[in-house]
Write a protein that binds this DNA or RNA. Structure first.
Lengths: 113, 113
DNA sequence: CTAACATTCGCACGATCGTTAAACTGTTGA
DNA sequence: TCAACAGTTTAACGATCGTGCGAATGTTAG
């Protein structure tokens, strides 16, 4: 019945206006970052844009697999795609994403040194 | 054969020393954040600690389900757990995590306004 | 012991991952 | 123009993993 647990201990933060759609979009991004293979691609892309063949060479995975992973990342809004001749270049969507990925990796890095 | 795609266009960023273990830990966190139910819990916890029964009341989900989700979040390193009498309080692990979750949600919020 | 709060177990269902093979798309040279 | 080719994407399939539910099990206070 009674929902209050702590006597009086409410830090009073204002909720950002958290719509359901926002939660879904954020979860999609989190989920996209939440697989080692895709996260490794994001890490490589912190250095700047790369084309699919570069990424296949750097990771050793098949072109098909890399392409599928890139699609998930792009669909979630983390990557942007640009065709240039025979090659397709992928890049982090913006600096906000760059910061997000950087923070995630750095937090994981100095979590248990 | 030839791996170079762009003539000469290398932004020269220094890689953080990105160990495999770091990638796995980061992916685990991303994956934990990557499900709407769990992300909603993280959002609620931005305001400060909450006990399981509070979260159950605020979300309308079953205690069992909330507890399972909290376990995934805690195991990934995002949450800390503290028992206090009959209640178990959960809180974001640290300010780094608070920033991470905040960034993810805010980026998703103003992505497609 | 009982009641309140929380966690864990077993199971069914759906989602996701990687592989293989086929389909596109754009470039190059006869 | 057309055919051959490199680069990339898509489809189909089996295997694996994750999610949520309900029941059973802990844990703590009175």
């Amino acid at each position: 019945m009674n929902a209050t647990c702590a006597p009086a201990d409410h830090p009073i933060h204002d909720h950002a206006p958290l719509s359901e759609a926002t939660v879904l979009r954020a979860a999609r991004m989190g989920s996209a970052m939440g697989e080692p293979g895709r996260l490794r691609l994001l890490a490589l892309l912190l250095d700047g844009r790369h084309c699919v063949s570069e990424l296949t060479a750097e990771t050793g995975d098949s072109t098909s697999l890399i392409s599928q992973r890139l699609k998930v990342l792009a669909d979630s809004g983390l990557l942007r795609r640009a065709r240039e001749g025979k090659h397709v270049y992928y890049n982090l969507a913006d600096d906000h994403v760059r910061e997000l990925v950087g923070n995630l990796l750095s937090h994981a890095a100095d979590d248990h040194p």
